[in-house]
Computed example of a mutant assay.
Amino acid sequence: MSDMNDALLLHLRAGSAKNLARFFGSNVTLSILNEDGLYSKFQGEMLLQSFFSKNKPSTVKLLQKITNKTNYSYYVYQLTSNKNSFRLFVKVSLSKNIETIEEFRVEKQASK
């Protein structure tokens, strides 16, 4: 896919950790609720799969997209599940025309 946002939206809506993990570098910084660290691609996929199994996405929408000249893009999404709303931050780097997710954060959104 030419647009990373389209790919992210597609896989987030499907709750597909496997497809999202394809974009991870060999290591990825993950922060899912209160668990964070630097993980291998496989560990990151397992943590994300665990999150999606507990929080099946019902809606996902892009809140903000920031691209700059330093080969990084930042995406902020709102993911609503059957239980809660979450804010997702995704940092993507571009190197040699390959986009890689370097950081993926999931935070619980405060209820209004």
Rank of each mutant, 00 (worst) to 15 (best):
N97P: 00
F24T: 04
D3I: 03
M46D: 15
N55P: 03
V60P: 00
K83R: 12
L38C: 09
N5E: 15
T59W: 00
K83V: 10
V76L: 14
N19M: 14
I98Q: 14
Y72I: 11
L10H: 15
T59H: 05
Y74F: 13
L63E: 11
K61F: 13
A14K: 07
G25Q: 02
N5A: 15
N68F: 05
Q64R: 14
T59I: 08
S50P: 01
T59L: 09
N27I: 09
L9W: 05
S2R: 15
G25P: 01
N19F: 10
F51I: 05
D36S: 11
F42A: 15
Y75K: 05
R87F: 12
K83D: 08
E45D: 03
S85H: 10
K54W: 07
L47Y: 00
V28W: 04
F24R: 04
N71W: 01
F24C: 05
L47Q: 04
T80M: 07
S31I: 01
I32L: 08
E102N: 14
K54L: 05
S40M: 03
S58P: 00
S26N: 10
A110V: 15
V92Q: 08
I98Y: 12
Q49L: 12
T80A: 09
Y39M: 05
R13Y: 00
L88S: 03
G44A: 01
A14I: 07
Q109T: 09
K61N: 14
M46W: 04
M4G: 03
L12I: 01
G15Y: 04
E99A: 14
I32S: 02
K108N: 10
G15P: 06
L20P: 02
L9P: 00
Q64P: 02
P57H: 07
L79E: 02
L88A: 04
S50C: 08
S111L: 15
I98T: 11
A17P: 06
K112M: 09
T80E: 12
L62M: 07
I98H: 14
F104H: 11
L8R: 02
S26L: 07
N55T: 03
K54C: 04
M1G: 15
L63T: 04
L47R: 06
L30D: 06
E45K: 13
Y39E: 03
M46Y: 05
S53V: 06
K69V: 10
A21Y: 06
L20T: 07
V76I: 14
N82C: 06
V60T: 01
F42T: 15
P57T: 09
N27E: 15
N34L: 09
A21P: 01
P57Q: 07
S53D: 10
I98V: 15
R105S: 11
K69P: 12
I98M: 12
T100H: 10
G37K: 06
Q64N: 13
K108H: 08
L62P: 04
N82R: 10
N19Q: 15
I32Q: 02
K18W: 07
V90G: 04
Y77E: 05
R87V: 14
T100W: 12
L79F: 01
T67H: 08
L48F: 03
H11R: 03
L48G: 00
V28D: 00
Q109G: 08
N27S: 12
L63S: 07
K91G: 08
V60W: 00
V28A: 00
D3K: 15
K96A: 12
Q109P: 06
A110M: 13
K69C: 10
T59S: 09
S40E: 01
K69N: 13
K69E: 14
M1L: 09
K54M: 06
P57A: 05
D36C: 11
Y39P: 02
F23D: 08
